[in-house]
Amino acid sequence: MNEIQARIKTFLSKFFGNHDLQPDEDIFALGFVNSMFAMQLVLFVEQEFQISIENEDLEFENFRTINSITNLIEHKTAIIVQS
C-alpha cells in the first residue's frame, strides 16, 4: 500500500469501524456511504491532496474503492505537475 492509499484508508477507517477495508473493496456496496459521507470524502481528498475535484470527476467509479480514489488523485496531481 502506498502513501496515498494509506492516507485514504486512515480517513475511511474513521467511518468503517472495525472493518479492515481493502484497497479494492467497494465502499458503496458495503452500505456505509450516504450523501453526507460522500461530501466529506470529496472535501477530504481536495484538502488532503491539494487538488480540485471538478464536476466531471464526481462519478461513483472515481470513489468506489481506495484504489479508484488513488487513481483519481494520481491523475489530478499529474495534471498539476505538467501545468
Rank of each mutant, 00 (worst) to 15 (best):
F15L: 02
F49I: 02
I8L: 15
I66Y: 06
F11P: 09
I8S: 03
Q40E: 15
A38N: 02
S83G: 15
E48A: 12
M1D: 07
E61K: 15
G17E: 10
V42L: 08
Q47G: 08
F49C: 07
S13P: 04
F16G: 03
K9F: 00
I4M: 02
I8F: 03
T65A: 10
K9Q: 14
E54W: 06
F44H: 10
S13N: 15
Q50L: 12
F37C: 03
E74V: 04
V81C: 12
K9S: 11
G17A: 09
E61F: 02
R7A: 11
F16R: 03
T77R: 15
G31R: 05
E74T: 09
T70L: 01
H19Q: 07
R64A: 14
S83D: 08
I80W: 04
V33T: 04
L41A: 13
Q50D: 14
T77W: 04
Q40P: 02
H75S: 11
Q50P: 00
L30H: 09
T10M: 06
E74N: 11
M39D: 02
F63C: 09
Q50R: 14
K76A: 04
F28P: 14
N71E: 14
A78D: 07
I69Y: 14
E46L: 00
I73S: 12
V81G: 07
D26Y: 12
K9D: 08
R64I: 08
L41G: 06
L58R: 12
F37Y: 11
